[in-house]
Design a protein around this nucleic acid. Structure first.
Length: 895
DNA sequence: AGCCTGACGTA
DNA sequence: CGTACGTCAGGCTA
């Protein structure tokens, strides 16, 4: 907890020297984003900064940077710092990122042409210490020893000892103890000894010990120089010989203390930081986990800064039998709702409900102590569509409430979905963040006594729930304009929000599992895992962990001397492709056992994972996430039912375990065929492609016949396979190299194939190029329904980043439009099921496929209904082809 | 314990 | 040097 009366403390950082240290301390290969931006220096610098902010609680902060290598020192002595390695580009590219990080923390950074960061720091220290009445303490965090001269009773240097975590606290006593001279004499000592890192040679053969002795004996370097002939021995001789160097060193290592920075210490007060832009940058840099949390915990708003009006919540836990009256008083006003409880795996419970209004009124309903009258009032209010409610992520609450026997209607805004449409790549509009901001303000306003209690006391469960309810309401207002601007209103109210109830239903229903069948498979594959492992050990004559790429590399490349495969960050890949390649070259039997071992252990793992998630009702209840995938797709977790094996025969046996539940007739699967290519045909308006789809014939064969200019019945399987790969790869931004890899043909042939393809389908070529151009211009891509994805990297100077963004720009409208389409299909199907009064139900969505459980006697009707609703989900220039199958299991229902 | 990496399953 | 996801085991660092 922060102390409002804490003493003023100025923290100064040498941005350049710290970042430079971090750059060499942290292995660059372990710190880079998916797009190739190195981040080790940003990471290390930020980590040091945040730790010091946390541990030292400064009130004022500034970061100084060097502008360039050219300073008055290099003018005076051209060799100054010349021995330093040429600054690597991997380092320089990170400096702007550090500046952006500081911007978002609202921390001032300062550069001054012709001078070094050290001089800026020295100037600020001098200013800060000049006013003796202010009581300002100074901390200097730097990796440059020149700053030791700035140490006084009121200013301390924090010097990183090794890596970026250990800081040595250099007080006057510490300096004197370590170097034998007081801080202000340190540069005199350094002048004699020299400074390797600045390429300032000192007196050969003279170390810190002798230098300190001379300085102390003669009272300062000036006197040592004046009485230089009194020093005897070889060292004295050397000193006299290198006197020029010493004098030059002393002149160069003196820090400039009177720069005109145009900034005062008072200007450096820490103010509230820009949370949204910080989060955005953390996302961009892919800083997750520990550092991210540390940043969020530490860089809190400062109480001295002007604070936005805190949330004024006038509310408490409602007394028995007063719930109805409270709700009546609210009437039809919009209300923020936060549900406390648990949900998932097909069940849930509610502990409490928090309600908040824009005018500050709030209430908490403790579900444990509800009277029957309260219960009825809550139930009626929740179910009343005319009482508008705002929630953040309504699906969980919906499930918890349903478990309690309560219906939820009148949800006018789900802020999690609104935020997703505004910023699908980010997690910036996080309700937890907004609530936390509010709680921090509450803490700042509350007395010191109850600060620590706010989070765990019972009353505070209610309090924080109400704050959260209010935060949802405020977030909704904050996002409203953004949603309009992003053109997402229609998607939000017509697609994403209505989908929530359907997903909740699917999760609650789950899918039945044949446990015995799964257990049989587990035993079967388990047997083979052991067999293959033994066979593999026998071949190489020892037992290793076959699941360890590290140990495998030793065996394959060192002991068996196989040719090196493609590089990974940590060595050479042992993935299935590479192992197959190695087998072709070496025919070593170990590889076959290893590959097979991988395959069966994976199958066994999948089965074990599934078995663990089967609930007491004999069904698996996945969780669908609606705000994860940047393109608009759903994702599925715990377990992921969108990646159940299907490609191999053995994999499909796992699909046999997903079966129709008791009381139902069968499973039905319905999927779109070539949905992405159809969308591409629609968006590109390529006549030939549209014609290919309208013909209703084998699409890949049809396109192959066009590309190779042969009659449809002369298309060979090879031709078809090549064009099929091309068709699928197009929407991903496939390169000639990638295509050649996949088809196992030479890059030249692949390149020729692509050229031929694009000449045949000119509309596709123009469309793909146009999509990227337009996205670069607008800053985002758009799907058929107007779902956006922002891609700022399209204008990046970094080729890797830019090209990665270009591939995303190619793919997002296509994958995203397909996502739009199947979401609409789900809504239409759900509505039609209800309209028709059918008991059949939707269970799963797998991107282009829906799985249903068919009620007795509804098979034909459901088949027709689903076909119609899926095919009619959009009106494209090409037909939407839907294939349907039914069977006892998911496998049998496939077609 | 928590995080990262490689490997691999799906559309 | 192909987009979008989630999960697992191994192994490193705290």
């Amino acid at each position: 907890m922060t102390d409002t009366n804490r003493p003023p403390r100025l923290l100064l950082l040498d941005g350049h020297s710290l970042a430079y240290r971090a750059f060499f301390a942290l292995p660059v290969e372990n710190f880079s984003t998916a797009t190739g931006q190195n981040t080790n220096a940003v990471y290390g610098f930020t980590s040091m900064l945040v730790n010091v902010l946390r541990d030292e609680q400064p009130t004022h902060v500034a970061v100084a940077f060097d502008v360039s290598r050219q300073t008055f020192r290099t003018e005076e002595y051209s060799e100054y710092k010349a021995k330093r390695n040429k600054t690597p580009g991997e380092f320089s590219s990170q400096l702007p990122l550090i500046e952006r990080m500081l911007d978002s923390f609202s921390i001032t950074y300062i550069k001054h042409p012709g001078y070094e960061a050290d001089d800026i720091i020295a100037t600020l220290v001098t200013q800060a210490l000049a006013d003796e009445t202010s009581g300002l303490e100074v901390l200097i965090l730097t990796g440059d020893r020149d700053s030791i001269q700035l140490v006084t009773d009121r200013s301390t240097v924090l010097y990183p000892m090794r890596g970026v975590s250990d800081l040595s606290r250099m007080t006057p006593a510490f300096v004197e103890d370590k170097y034998g001279v007081p801080p202000h004499r340190y540069p005199e000592l350094a002048a004699i000894v020299g400074e390797q890192s600045d390429n300032l040679p000192g007196v050969p053969g003279v170390g810190a010990g002798f230098a300190a002795k001379w300085i102390n004996t003669y009272d300062g370097l000036d006197n040592v120089i004046a009485q230089a002939d009194k020093i005897t021995g070889k060292k004295g001789e050397a000193f006299r010989e290198h006197l020029g160097d010493v004098i030059r060193n002393r002149r160069l290592n003196a820090l400039v203390r009177d720069l005109d920075l145009g900034i005062k210490v008072d200007d450096l007060v820490l103010t509230e930081w820009d949370r949204a832009s910080a989060l955005e940058l953390l996302d961009e840099l892919e800083f997750r986990g520990e550092l991210r949390t540390r940043i969020m915990d530490v860089v809190a708003p400062n109480e001295d800064a002007p604070v936005e009006a805190g949330v004024e919540l006038d509310g408490a836990t409602l007394a028995p039998d007063t719930v109805g009256a409270w709700l009546d008083a609210v009437g039809a006003e919009q209300i923020g709702l936060s549900v406390r409880g648990t949900w998932g795996s097909g069940t849930g419970r509610v502990n409490g409900l928090a309600l908040a209004l824009a005018d500050g009124r709030a209430a908490y309903v403790d579900v444990e102590t509800l009277t029957p009258a309260d219960d009825a009032a809550v139930a009626a209010w929740l179910a009343d569509a005319a009482r508008p409610k705002v929630l953040h992520d309504a699906k969980g609450p919906l499930l918890a409430l349903a478990a309690q026997g309560w219906d939820l209607a009148g949800v006018v805004e789900d802020t999690a979905l609104a935020a997703y449409l505004v910023a699908p790549d980010q997690r910036s509009y996080d309700l937890a963040d907004l609530s936390l901001r509010y709680l921090h303000r509450e803490l700042a306003q509350a007395g010191d006594d109850d600060q620590g209690m706010l989070f765990d006391e019972d009353a505070n469960v209610a309090r924080s729930a109400m704050v959260q309810a209010r935060a949802a309401l405020d977030l909704s207002a904050e996002l409203a304009g953004e949603v309009e601007k992003a053109g997402g209103r229609n998607l939000l109210t017509e697609v994403e929000m209505p989908l929530v109830g359907i997903l909740a239903g699917m999760e609650k229903t789950g899918i039945a599992v044949d446990i015995e069948h799964l257990e049989g498979l587990e035993a079967h594959f388990g047997e083979e895992v052991r067999g293959e492992a033994e066979a593999a050990y026998a071949v190489i004559g020892k037992e290793i962990n076959l699941g360890s790429p590290k140990q495998l590399q030793v065996v394959l490349f060192d002991e068996l001397g196989m040719p090196k495969t493609k590089r990974t960050k940590t060595g050479y890949t042992t993935d299935a492709d590479a192992l197959q390649g190695l087998f072709k070259q070496t025919e070593h039997p170990f590889l076959l056992h290893l590959l097979r071992h991988r395959e069966v252990i994976r199958l066994r793992q999948t089965i074990e994972g599934l078995l663990k998630t089967v609930q007491p009702d004999g069904r698996i209840h996945t969780t669908f996430h609606q705000t994860i995938a940047a393109t608009g797709r759903l994702s599925s977790t715990e377990p992921n039912l969108q990646n159940i094996p299907v490609r191999t025969e053995e994999g499909r046996r796992i699909r046999e375990s997903f079966v129709v539940g008791s009381g139902y007739d069968s499973l039905l699967t319905a999927d779109y065929s070539q949905i992405e290519m159809r969308i591409m045909a629609h968006l590109s308006e390529d006549e030939l492609l549209i014609e290919a789809f309208r013909s209703g014939r084998d699409f890949h064969a049809e396109t192959a016949s066009r590309v190779f200019d042969v009659a449809p019945d002369e298309v060979t399987p090879e031709m078809r396979a090549k064009i099929k790969a091309m068709n699928y790869g197009l929407a991903y931004g496939l390169s000639a190299f990638g295509l050649s890899q996949q088809l196992g043909i030479d890059p030249g042939e692949a390149s020729g194939l692509m050229k031929e393809y694009f000449e045949t389908f000119g509309g596709i070529r123009d469309y793909l190029a146009g999509v990227v151009d337009e996205a670069r211009r607008a800053g985002f891509t758009e799907t058929i329904m107007g779902r956006r994805r922002y891609l700022p990297d399209l204008t990046s100077d970094n080729r890797m980043r830019r090209e990665a963004a270009e591939r995303m720009a190619l793919n997002a409208p296509i994958q995203g439009s397909a996502a739009d389409l199947i979401k609409v299909a789900m809504l239409r199907t759900d509505a039609a099921l209800r309209e028709a009064g059918l008991a059949s139900r939707m269970l799963l969505q797998v991107h282009d496929e829906l799985v249903f459980e068919v009620a007795d006697g509804e098979r034909e009707q459901l088949d027709a209904l689903v076909r119609a609703q899926m095919a009619g989900a959009a009106d494209l220039t090409v037909p939407l082809d839907v294939s349907v199958g039914t069977g006892r299991s998911w496998h049998e229902a496939a077609h």
